[in-house]
Each structure stands twice: as C-alpha cells, then as structure tokens.
Design a protein around this nucleic acid. Structure first.
Lengths: 122, 122
DNA sequence: ATAGCTGTACTATCGTGCTAGTGCAGTGGT
DNA sequence: ACCACTGCACTAGCACGATAGTACAGCTAT
C-alpha cells in the first residue's frame, strides 16, 4: 500500500497535477480520501521528504520541492526498467529467447493496450 | 516465496525439465536445496495438485500430470499479460500515451535485454 | 490568545507469509 | 517385517506491513 501511494504521488508530480511550491493534501485528508490509515500516508510523506521530493512545513503542510518533478520522472522510469526486466525474465521462463521474446512482448503490449496500435497506425 | 517457487516449477515444466509421468523432487529435498522451509514447498505442491498440475502419490512423490505442460504454459502466459498490463499502466503514469508508450517500451526492452537485438538483427 | 489545522512520534493490535518442529499415514526396496 | 522414504497435518513463533488510537509541537486565521 505504501508503495502504491508513493507511486501515485510520483505520477501526479510527473503529470504536473502538483507543481513546485504546491501543497500536497494533508496526511489525514488524503488518508480518509483513499480509505487508508493516516499513519500509512504519514510514512509515505516522511519517506518522500527524506528523498528530497517534499519539504515538510510543520503546521501548514508538505511543500513540493523544485527537484520533485525531475526526480519523480527518474524514479518512475527506473521502476519501468525493472518491470521490463522482470517481464523479459518471465518470458524467458516461458521458453522464449532473443527475438522471440521481443516479438511476443510486442504482441502482448498491443493486446493489453489496443488503443496504442490505433493511435500508432493512425 | 511460494509464488517464486511455483513459477520456477511451472517454468521447468514448460522447459520440459520435468515431463508427464516424472516425479518432482521431494518436499524435503527441494526445500533443503533452495534453502526454504519444507512447509513452504509442501504448500506449493499441495496447491499445484489442487490446480491439476500434479498428482500426489502418497509414499512415493508428486507425479507430473499429462495436462501439466500446457497448463503451465497457459498460466505463465497469463502472468506475462498481467505484467505487460502493469508495465503499460506505469508507463502511462509516466505521462506517456498510445504510441509513445509503445516506442518507449520497445527501447526499454532492448535496453534491459541487449542480447535480443543482437539475435534479432543477426 | 485561541481554536483548528498541520506533520510527527509512539505504542498496541491484527493479518499474512514464512519458519520451526513434531507427528502420522502411505509406499517401496531390502 | 522392517526401515527409509514419501506427502500431509498440525501447532507455535517470528517478521513485516497496515491499522488503531493517542499525544505532542508548530503554524495560521480569527
């Protein structure tokens, strides 16, 4: 859950739904909104501050730092690479190798995301 | 851990390292080999029997059923599709859409698996 | 000042998955 | 018959993450 919340916040940063200088939702507000314990949100915020995404303004809220967006983009991209690595490993376990992996994955991606081929062939 | 063990066994089935009629390693044998508690392996075996991959031969071992390989291939492929779905979702969270997702993923896949491009361009 | 918000800190509880240990029933080679 | 193996079942403990509840320190608008 903590991981999920962190990823959602990073995604919001990348999508510029929160920008430098903005305040994030309060610990209690976000917690009640997503039906999660305040402690869980508080831990995420604390970690995000430790990692330089946020600046804690005691009494007013969590401030989005100036490096937040680029750092978020970087972290999400790293996550993507790890996921891609797992995907390839699993595909290998399926008995595929090299180009076979690549072609199968291409098929799976289109299958899981039909819209992408619509747009890419438009 | 249980998930990992299950996946490894399914992969071995797909790779024909175990075939119909073969006996799997004993619960205690596999457990000591991969440094895991026998109960964990036993649970995996029990689940695999419930799902029709194996047939428990009390006293002698776990027998690979005749549907095992095709079922394993099917399950691993389903896992792949789910992983691909997650990947696409995360890529979207990165701010990408449609064809952008597709081209980025292609790059990531080659990046994470350089060998695949070697083989595919050979 | 004060009331109401903010993040932070702490302990306790619960659920889950893995570990640890023991025992039992069934099979097969000797 | 016997013994070593097999899977299976059960209880207890530990680690980890999330929950629950409370309390404290700092800011801000009224």
């Amino acid at each position: 859950m903590s991981v999920q919340i962190r990823q959602d916040i990073l995604a919001a940063l990348v999508a510029k739904r929160y920008r430098q200088g903005d305040m994030l939702p309060s610990v209690r507000g976000l917690a009640s909104e997503i039906l999660v314990n305040p402690n869980t949100v508080a831990k995420v915020y604390r970690d995000l501050e430790r990692d330089g995404f946020l600046e804690a303004k005691r009494g007013s809220g969590m401030l989005v730092s100036h490096k937040a967006e680029s750092k978020a983009r970087s972290e999400l991209r790293t996550n993507l690479q790890e996921l891609a690595g797992d995907l390839i490993q699993k595909a290998r376990q399926c008995g595929l190798e090299g180009a076979d992996v690549h072609t199968l994955l291409e098929g799976l991606l289109l299958e899981a995301d039909p819209a992408s081929i619509e747009r890419s062939t438009r």
